[in-house]
């Protein structure tokens, strides 16, 4: 499953990062790496983007970016 599939409040561990080039680098630099634990904090009133907590910082990602991040759900 991907980060985009997670419900509000869920926690997951990153397995792999898709995408390429500058966009992928940006995600890496934000600290989204394989093994990183991410939780779903809040969703925009219009359903997209979604805010995730990554390494103690809340970062909003649009759905198509989140869909490139493969995760394993944790409880």
């Amino acid at each position: 499953m991907t980060l985009a599939d997670l419900p509000l409040g869920a926690r997951a561990q990153v397995l792999a990062l898709g995408g390429a080039g500058a966009e992928r680098r940006r995600l890496l630099d934000l600290g989204i790496l394989p093994g990183t634990v991410i939780s779903v904090e809040s969703r925009s009133p219009l359903g997209d983007p979604t805010a995730y907590r990554v390494r103690d910082t809340v970062i909003a990602l649009r759905r198509e970016q989140a869909a490139r991040i493969t995760v394993r759900s944790e409880i």
Binding site: A22, R25, R26, L28, D29, L30, G31
Partner: peptide
């Protein structure tokens, strides 16, 4: 910046 590696 978060990093100095990605050349924005």
């Amino acid at each position: 910046t978060y990093s100095l590696l990605s050349t924005s």
